[in-house]
Computed example of a mutant assay.
Amino acid sequence: MPKNVLITGGAGFIGSHLADELLACGHHVRVLDCLAPQVHGDGGRRPEYLDPSVELVVGDVTDPQAVRAALQGIDTVFHFAAAVGVGQSMYEIAHYTRTNNLGTAVLLEALIEKPVGQLVVASSMSLYGEGLYRDADGQVRDMGERPLAQLRAGQWEWQDAEGRALVPAPTPETKAPALASVYALSKYDQERLCLMTGRAYGIKTVALRFFNAYGPRQALSNPYTGVLAIFAARLLNGNAPQIFEDGLQQRDFVSVYDIARGCRLAMENEAAAGEVFNLGSGVPYTVREVAERVARAVGREDIAPEITGKYRTGDIRHCYADIGKAGRMLGYAPQVNLAGGLTELAAWLEGQAAIDRVSQASAELARRGLAL
């Protein structure tokens, strides 16, 4: 049966792809978005990529009146509205807390007055901190944060007490949060607020922890967007992608199409209510390898990544998703591999303009002692 769906933050990268996914299944989609300049540029114009069938309401998720108006006639809500960026969150604390924490609270108070049938909230892999590891005996280890002295010495990898290397292992939803940034804290707050309020008021609520999403429509001029878009912006301007540490840290890169499909599956599966799911690819890649792949995809193999040997406060070494639970309960299975996803990304990048603001962002972090 067609649903009337509201996506907060739905004019952005992931939200707009979810809108396409839902429209293709016959649902009506409304979007509430403030069209933030850092993401959408100046002017507050409707993004060209947003399907004309989408009803766009321009407003701030922290504005109770705008939220209540956007909820009229809605039976399902995807809550994606959030300020995004680990580094930036460590100095724009009020902005991140207002948008992410207060914005969620405003939405939930409106839903208490007028409950909907379903609520799906976008959470983040950032709340895990470090992923899990296996030691030489095959035991799973939860390591916490790397000591500052270790990072200053340039010792990037985790080792056991005997100096043996620990091997990254997939991270399941059962891992305890390790909140190393304001952004991570705010995403965990969004997740828990939605789940507890949904339980209290009979709203079927699901939290989805997104890993490193990539694909067309990422904000190339936003230095706090996904790392693949940041690399692409550097390369399009003839600059080398900058990589912290030694570039061998591992991440889980997942196509935005798989994320959108996973969101729809969570909406369609009533057994998902009250649950938390990882949405990733389940495949780890080093950041250096991904930078080299992006360079090949956009025809700039001549630009090698710059391995800085520096580190940022709160950075983790390795983390990739265990997607078994989403597979079992939602039928989620990634359909876009990295090679295919980068080919499409490169095609989209042709003709795209990007202002490279990475150096300014890095300098801001260094000025504040957050990157050394």
Rank of each mutant, 00 (worst) to 15 (best):
A304Q: 08
A304G: 07
P305M: 06
P305V: 06
E306R: 04
I307D: 00
T308M: 02
G309Y: 05
G309H: 01
G309K: 01
K310G: 06
K310R: 14
Y311C: 05
Y311V: 08
Y311S: 04
Y311F: 12
R312V: 00
T313G: 05
G314C: 03
G314W: 02
D315Q: 07
I316Y: 12
I316H: 01
I316Q: 00
R317F: 03
R317D: 13
R317W: 03
H318Q: 07
Y320N: 00
Y320Q: 02
D322A: 05
I323N: 06
G324S: 14
K325D: 07
A326T: 13
R328F: 12
R328W: 11
L330C: 07
L330Y: 08
G331N: 06
Y332T: 09
Y332F: 13
A333R: 09
A333M: 11
A333F: 13
Q335W: 10
V336G: 02
V336A: 07
L338V: 14
L338N: 03
A339V: 09
A339D: 11
A339L: 13
G340T: 15
G340R: 11
G341T: 12
G341N: 04
G341V: 15
L342V: 11
L342S: 04
L342Q: 00
T343V: 14
T343S: 14
T343N: 10
E344P: 03
E344Y: 09
E344G: 15
E344D: 15
L345H: 02
A346F: 05
A346E: 11
A346S: 13
A346Y: 05
W348K: 03
W348M: 06
W348C: 06
W348Q: 04
L349C: 05
E350R: 12
E350W: 06
E350F: 02
E350Y: 03
G351F: 09
G351V: 11
Q352S: 04
A353D: 15
A353G: 08
A353F: 12
A354N: 09
A354K: 09
I355F: 11
I355D: 10
D356W: 01
R357G: 06
R357L: 13
Q360F: 08
Q360E: 15
S362H: 10
A363T: 07
E364L: 10
L365Q: 05
R367E: 08
R368C: 12
R368G: 07
R368T: 08
R368S: 08
R368P: 01
G369I: 09
L370Y: 00
